[in-house]
Design a protein around this nucleic acid. Structure first.
Lengths: 141, 141
DNA sequence: TCTATATTTAACCAATCGGTTACTTAACTA
DNA sequence: TAGTTAAGTAACCGATTGGTTAAATATAGA
């Protein structure tokens, strides 16, 4: 999709690549080392491709050391994805305690912002009032 | 892919779907409402497909209300992805001196095999010592 | 120079993705 | 009943993905 955040999420959407990141979280590793856990099921060119995906997503950087290509995890892209997730923290923390719904109803305020722009920030936790519901679903004509 | 976490990340790897989630963070919405910002560039069946991806990823749930299909954001999958990210917090907090660089690179807003191991946890922040490096990259034979 | 190791590139393939148009199904309303 | 609106399905398409094998490239070492 060409934007970096999309590339980052896409790169994370594969267990092999997540496992590679987990390995790299312990320190740099070259291609053969990264490939080792998968060598039984996957060829080296496939590993190379996964690494390219991770690199394009900004999740790793690569250098050269003799014939080796050490890979290093890159905090920035990780933080970029985490920052996006962070915007939704209010939502998943809200649903933690359904019992305290009334408290949120009190503190939540209506927001007029619309999600017209791509990748708009989430504005408020999802509070649905009866009126909103009817406004949305009622027959208008 | 088939595992839920992969599906979740894959679903997030599309700006249209992220915008839909942003809209849903403000409250339930039916299909036409969700489609509205995209109607100029996208057909309704395309919207339906995106919603199916989000649903399969566990990011939304859908109900029925007359001929409408209200969609609701689902905290669980969001939390699942955030929890995975959280494991790497130590890594991106470690190198937060380079934060500024990245924020300039990222455009504004956007602000196993199948892994033999089941998404192994990252173990330690990436600290690379000179000795480790030599052990890894030295010629062994 | 020759050989071994590390890694990438090229070419190919099947499956999935993101989109389309045309048609269908479901429910309300007159 | 007929008409309208909401949403989904079917069939298709080109691009991308994730994998393969075979061959090429880069470097070190004897």
């Amino acid at each position: 999709m060409s934007d970096l955040l999309s590339n980052t999420f896409a790169a994370l959407a594969d267990p092999t690549r997540r496992a590679m990141l987990a390995r790299l979280s312990q320190g740099e590793a070259n291609v053969t080392e990264l490939a080792q856990p998968f060598r039984q099921n996957m060829s080296l060119p496939a590993v190379t491709k996964h690494l390219k995906v991770l690199e394009k997503a900004g999740l790793i950087t690569r250098s050269r050391e003799a014939q080796y290509r050490p890979c290093k995890i890159n905090a920035d892209a990780l933080r970029g994805a985490a920052d996006w997730m962070e915007q939704y923290r209010a939502i998943w923390e809200e649903s933690f305690d359904r019992l305290g719904d009334y408290l949120k109803t009190v503190t939540a305020k209506e927001s007029a912002a619309k999600a017209n722009t791509v990748d708009a920030k989430p504005v408020q936790p999802a509070i649905t009032t009866k009126n909103e519901k009817e406004k949305r679903h009622g027959r208008q004509k």
